[in-house]
Nucleic acid binder design. Structure first.
Lengths: 156, 156
DNA sequence: TATTGTTATACTCTATAACTATA
DNA sequence: TATAGTTATAGAGTATAACAATA
């Protein structure tokens, strides 16, 4: 027998989650690589496609990406002609983001690839188990927001 | 109304998982910070404590950390007098890792802090829901191993 | 030859401060 | 003065190649 085990750490949600997420990230990036996308660039592209004329600040807020980091992702996607930045008419500080035709076509392929990846990773889970999993994940996300507030309140 | 939503991405496991994991990581790092630890250094310290005389290669394999990256983590923990590297008598290439008394005491505190964090993040989940969640996460991790093998086989 | 630990390096993701141009 | 986007920069975490010592 090989001896060591990670049994202690398996008691914690965070450990199981880190390993499951690492598996998901590796798999989705392998699926998106041939399309020139990664998990992060895909999520931005899909969001812009689904929310035409969304502004950078708003997009950053929804995806919980810091604005300076989003700039680089958009540079990459705009440089690949997948989306456009157009000055907002009512506020000349802001840009409105819209996917190009090329971006829409790539997004279609990416959505298919990510759906296949998703089904692969959820293999063996019933619909009910999968729903319960996503419900639990969203619950954890909300619980985290609660304790984040508590941390900020505790040092004003 | 504010308009944009991340509804499309919410269909995917990976998106919920990324956000839940980000919440967990932020919370556990906030809990461990006062002890001078992070998620990664804590997991190494707890593993060494639970597996005295474990060797670096073996530890790296179990925790799925690349050996070069583990070296830096061990430098940090050894520098803080939390564990020791001792040459193995039967193989003078290898080091045996063991926590010091100081390391054991800090690990006790850290385990308490991480347990409290874990309970906070799982708030609102019944025991059965929590068990189902961890079962699903391990299933996903295994599914990922399967498709990783497939990727490697497909380009030999 | 192969393995253990190490060094050096690079890439991705994340986080913050400070700037510009508009409002 | 405040906000939108940007620049520059720094820190984690992760990944690979190449080396010395030992097997």
């Amino acid at each position: 027998m090989s001896g060591a085990s990670d049994g202690i750490l398996r008691a914690f949600l965070g450990y199981d989650m880190k390993r499951a997420f690492a598996a998901i990230q590796a798999d989705v990036n392998a699926a998106l690589g041939p399309l020139g996308l990664r998990m992060l660039t895909f999520s931005v592209l899909a969001m812009v496609r689904d929310n035409p004329a969304i502004r950078q600040s708003h997009l950053a807020e929804v995806l919980m990406i810091e604005r300076p980091n989003l700039v680089l992702i958009l540079d990459e996607l705009e440089g690949a002609d997948l989306l456009t930045r157009v000055r907002a008419r009512d506020d000349r500080r802001a840009f409105e983001l819209t996917v190009t035709l090329k971006g829409r076509r790539l997004c279609d392929k990416a959505l298919a690839a990510v759906s296949a990846h998703d089904a692969r990773m959820a293999m063996g889970l019933s619909d009910a188990e999968r729903d319960a999993l996503q419900g639990a994940l969203r619950r954890i996300e909300r619980n985290g927001r609660g304790s984040q507030d508590a941390r900020q309140v505790s040092r004003p």
